[in-house]
Every structure is written in structure tokens, then in C-alpha cells.
């Protein structure tokens, strides 16, 4: 199993599209910073517009913490999309290049083979989120400095620098579980659809559907709380003034459960399907 994981890592970092996708991610990060540099004050103006009549403001809200929060918003769509493309590609390329048949001719367990892909997908996702977090913290603080964070979530919330820093770190950690869920879901989709283009289209559709359904109110019942599409905004709970840690913990636990379910589904289907 250990060697299968090594092999999967080797394959992942050997393929050029991994680097293209990662480069795309960091280009997005750079664009967010660039646009924030020019439009950040517009955001703040919009937020504080009707308060200007009653208040004087002292201090700069366009700072590193706001920038990190803006980058964190790539967790909605950009980051999971890139991760889904890379991760699903680790299996679809094996189908396409027919390396899967070659591997399956070896004395390799199908379960262990696919499980190693799921393990590598998880570790790779964690690594990408970690790198994104480190680069966004370093670049944002370096270029924009630190300061209070302003976030609009039902109310206009202000967080002091230290509090903002802690919340942003936790948001990356919690968001990581959502990203792992999407990565593993895309790998399961690759098991079902095999072909790269089909898998990517279905993955994008899955991601869009999750984002759309997140905003749909399924009523005040348990389904609204536990349906997996309702869990992907958990990282945003860190930016409510009072943090509901219980809700966050439950959501993270559910994301782990859903990720496991998708993994079991994928492995089960892969085990039962013949490799053509």
C-alpha cells in the first residue's frame, strides 16, 4: 500500500497538467490581489457608504486580512474546480493511456490501488490548501500589512487583527475538509465515467449544483442541516461574530462521513467493474 501511495504521488507530480492547474490557482490568487489593490477601496466604500454620514473612520480596512479573506473566497468555486480537474485526472488519464490495464495485470489489489489514489487525493488537497494559505498570508501581510477585518455576513462584522488572523487560519482548516470532499467526489465520478471530458463536465456540474443548492432552503428540518451541499459554507461560520463551534464541528464530522461514503462508493464500483 505504501508503495502504491508513493507511485501515485510520483504519477501526480510527473504529469504536466498538475503544474498547469497549480499555476492557474496561483494566477487566480495574484488576480484577486491585483484587483483588490485597485477595487478593494470600492468594496469598503460600499460597505461603509451609509455610515459615512454618521461616523468618522480612522484606520485602513484594505489590509492583509481583507485580502486573505478575498482569497479564501476561492474556496467557493475556483479551488474545488481546479482540484477536481487534477484529482479526477489521476484516474481518467490511466483509463485513457491504458496504464490501468498494465497495473491490473500485476499482483495489485484493485481496492488498494484505488484506495491509494483516494489517500493521495486527500494529501494533495491538504497540501494545496496549505500552500494557498501560506502564500496568501505571506503575500497579503507583506504587501498590504495587517489590520482589522471587515466582513458582511447578515451584519457588518469587525474583527481585530489578532482575532481576524485566528479566524482566517481556522477558516482554511475547515475549508480544507470541503476541498477534500470535492476532490474525493471527483475521483468517484472518474470511477463512474472513466473518460476525462465527461468526468470534468460532470464534476463541474456537481460543483455548480452544490453551490446552487447551498442557497436553497429545504425548510427547518434535519435534511437542511445534514445534506452535503449545505456543508460547504462551513468555513464561513468562522466570520459570524459569535462562532458556533458546535455547528462547525458537526459539519466537519459530516463532511468526513460524506467523503468516506463517496470513497466507499467509488471503491465498491471499481471493484465490481471489469477493466476494459
Amino acid at each position: 500500500m505504501k508503495y502504491l501511495i508513493y507511485a501515485e504521488f510520483y504519477k501526480l507530480f510527473k504529469q504536466a497538467k498538475t503544474y498547469y492547474a497549480l499555476a492557474a490557482l496561483f494566477v487566480i490568487e495574484a488576480i484577486v490581489m491585483f484587483s483588490a489593490y485597485y477595487q478593494g477601496s470600492t468594496i469598503i466604500d460600499v460597505l461603509l457608504d451609509n455610515l459615512k454620514e454618521s461616523f468618522y473612520f480612522e484606520g485602513d480596512l484594505l489590509n492583509g486580512n481583507l485580502l486573505i479573506y478575498l482569497i479564501l473566497n476561492t474556496l467557493w468555486f475556483h479551488l474545488p474546480l481546479i482540484l477536481m480537474i487534477i484529482v479526477s485526472g489521476t484516474l481518467t488519464s490511466e483509463y485513457k493511456d491504458r496504464t490501468l490495464q498494465a497495473v491490473m495485470m500485476q499482483p495489485v489489489s484493485k481496492v488498494k490501488f484505488l484506495l491509494s489514489k483516494y489517500v493521495v487525493a486527500t494529501l494533495f488537497t491538504v497540501l494545496v490548501v496549505l500552500v494557498l494559505a501560506i502564500t496568501s498570508f505571506c503575500l497579503s501581510y507583506l504587501i498590504f500589512g495587517s489590520g482589522d477585518l471587515i466582513v458582511y455576513l447578515d451584519t457588518l462584522n469587525f474583527f481585530e487583527n489578532k482575532d481576524a488572523f485566528n479566524r482566517l487560519i481556522w477558516a482554511f482548516i475547515v475549508g480544507m475538509f470541503s476541498m477534500v470532499f470535492f476532490s474525493l467526489a471527483s475521483l468517484t465520478l472518474a470511477v463512474f465515467f472513466k473518460e476525462a471530458t465527461k468526468t470534468w463536465i460532470i464534476s463541474v456540474f456537481f460543483l455548480i449544483l452544490c453551490n446552487l443548492l447551498l442557497k436553497v432552503d429545504f425548510g427547518n428540518n434535519w435534511f437542511n442541516d445534514v445534506f452535503f451541499v449545505k456543508l460547504n459554507d462551513t468555513w464561513q461560520y468562522l466570520f459570524y461574530y459569535e462562532i458556533d463551534w458546535k455547528k462547525i464541528s458537526i459539519n466537519v464530522f459530516l463532511l468526513i462521513v460524506y467523503s468516506t461514503i463517496f470513497t466507499i462508493l467509488g471503491i465498491n464500483y471499481f471493484k465490481k467493474t471489469d477493466i476494459e
Binding site: 454620514e53 461616523f55 485602513d60
Partner: peptide, 30 residues
């Protein structure tokens, strides 16, 4: 608006508008 308690230094000179200084972001009523 949800905001923690904020602190600032204020100074007033007769005939002038009140001035304020703070290390972090503050909203002061006009």
C-alpha cells in the same frame, strides 16, 4: 454592526474640530 470595544486618543483645541488617533480601525460618531 458587530464591533469590539475600540480605543482612541482625542484632542480638542478651541475653535477647531476634534481630532482623534488610534492604532486600529475606529468609527467615531460625527
Amino acid at each position: 454592526i458587530k464591533m469590539p470595544k475600540k480605543y482612541a486618543d482625542i484632542s480638542y483645541e478651541r475653535g477647531e474640530r476634534i481630532q482623534f488617533e488610534s492604532d486600529d480601525f475606529v468609527m467615531l460618531p460625527k
